[in-house]
Amino acid sequence: MAAVPQRVHLKFLVNGEETPVSFAPYKTLLEVLREDLNLTGTKHGCELGECGACAVLIDGEPHLSCLVLGVECEGRRIETVEGLADGAELHPLQAAFADLGAAQCGYCTPGILMTAKALLDKDPNPSRETIKEAISGNLCRCTGYQQIFEAIEEAAVRMKP
């Protein structure tokens, strides 16, 4: 234990901003985001990679931030729910989730929004089956998922140029 440095100093690219951060090296990305960068929009439900609440995008791909060590993220592009809106203007996914009841308690919502963003960035016209598959690693206990599917579909429509 004694040989491990107390803290490491790294730079991430968080929501488009170069972000220097200092943290204990055992910390997961989830812990660094929440505890060292005060980005508490990213949630946790198990810290074992089982619930999907902590999903963020790393270099555009959805990852469970509880299974990624902070030290693995040096120089990488990290997107969290805090970076989803454009200033005061909600991302179409956010607006559709709010309008269509896709967020009830809102706790799994950030993870699902980020996972859905990765999906729509790749596939602007996903089928219902593709949507179901994409968010199958994100547990939601409130909605029964139907309004989430509909919100992602609605966002896809709203995002059409």
Partner: peptide, 10 residues
């Protein structure tokens, strides 16, 4: 609803 989709619900 807005707070819930922006991660601002505390």
């Amino acid at each position: 609803g807005r707070a819930k989709v922006t991660g601002l619900t505390r």
